[in-house]
Computed example of a mutant assay.
Amino acid sequence: MQVRKLEHQELFDAHRIMAVAFEGEFDPEKERESLKNKKEPEHPGQTWGAFEEGALLGCFDLTSFPVRFDGHHVQMGGVGGVSTLPPYRRKGVIRACMQSAFQSMYQEGCAFSFLYPFSTAYYRQFGFENGAACQTWTLPILSLKLPYTGGTIEQLFPGDDLSPLLEIYNSYYKNFNLSVLRNGYDASLEKENWLNQKRYLYLWRDESGVPRSFLLASRDGEILDCTTDFARKNGLLFTDARSLQALLHFVYGAFSSHYKSIRFTAPSCLRLQSLIPEMAQAECRWFTNGMVRAVHVEKVLSLCSCRGEGALRIEISDPLLEENCGVWKLSFAPGRENLVEKTAEAPDLSLTIGDFSTLICGIRSAEELPWMPAATVCNSSAPLDRVFRAKPCHVLDLF
């Protein structure tokens, strides 16, 4: 089996495999025309594939994103379109692609990889682990009788200046690990006529005219739907409690006669219980925000934020990258860069690459180690909580 990056002329076969795997439509002539006219995307992408006797067996897309991590900017490889033709499944096709792609990413200094799984168990075998918790809230609009907070609401239309959306995104997500650094909030909004899609965009500015929150919504029956999925990228973003309150106050006044509920998704750190006056009919669905994997352990440890001064020896097992395996000694102190080296000393903690990934990103904390069956604490007096603590972490981009 040969694994390599695909050339542009080979993407036709890759997209056909993806259409089979996801049971989607595939028009050969439209696909050829689309590839012929394809322009360079905002984030550069690759497609990795496995071949046998010249035939493409399976593949996936890998898109490089600059993301935030503990006050630094690093690269994250977004994995999507993982596909294998049915006759070649369970033959190690995707494992071979993953191993080659991760090796390339490691050599290029990429820090993390991320994907949205069809099965968490399937992707754990490649070192991925569940991301941070998210919540989708469904709130009866009549329960949103909130006090007026001032400021102004305006409706935006196709062709209007959309830079306030990026300003709000950056203001809220500036301290979230793995949040993508964007040139614009959503490139598709610049190109599409979202009114034809029956989607509507509302922006709230405070008294100084500073954009602080917005919602992009469409109708789903009697629900004002602000959620994002691969079919439609709606959204509700805000910078603080007051800016969310302003949006919900607007929704109550403008839409209580036309919709029964509003639905939106937010990171689990949102505490609506203290903001909404009536929660008896509120619904909340909890889910995980994709899966994350550290690609370059040494780089991640050198950049991670630690509290105080100390040293921690972490043993890592990685099924696909031998470079990550072994015992890593992390020495840290205020006012200087972390020192990272491999050591023959006994470890304080033994982790899989997946568990390490969630701990270093702040998705899990040292207090959760007893609930992680594959983790072994070898030295209970080690400064685990100075390195592994809860931090906001969320990926809003889809790929």
Score class of each variant (00 low, 15 high):
C304S: 10
G308I: 05
V300C: 09
H296N: 15
C306A: 13
L303R: 02
E298I: 00
C304M: 13
V295Y: 04
S317M: 10
C304T: 13
S331V: 15
S305T: 06
L303W: 05
E322R: 15
V297M: 06
E309P: 01
E315C: 08
C304V: 08
R307Q: 12
L312F: 00
L321A: 08
E322I: 04
L312H: 05
L303C: 09
E298L: 07
V295Q: 06
P319C: 07
E298G: 14
V297A: 13
E315F: 10
P334Y: 06
L312Q: 08
V327H: 04
L330H: 10
W328D: 10
F332L: 07
C306L: 07
S331G: 14
L303Y: 02
E309C: 04
A333S: 15
K299P: 00
N324C: 03
E315T: 05
L303H: 01
S331D: 12
G310R: 08
E323Y: 06
N324S: 08
L321V: 02
E323N: 15
E323S: 15
L312N: 08
P319L: 08
K299F: 05
K299G: 04
S331L: 13
K329S: 13
A311M: 12
C306R: 05
D318N: 12
A333H: 04
E309F: 01
G310Q: 09
C306T: 12
C304Q: 02
V295F: 02
L321S: 07
S331Q: 15
I316C: 02
S317N: 14
N324Q: 10
G308W: 02
S317A: 14
L320P: 03
L303E: 07
S302C: 01
S305R: 09
L330N: 11
S305W: 00
I314C: 07
A333L: 10
K329G: 07
R313P: 00
L321I: 04
H296T: 01
S305Q: 14
L312Y: 06
C304H: 01
E309L: 02
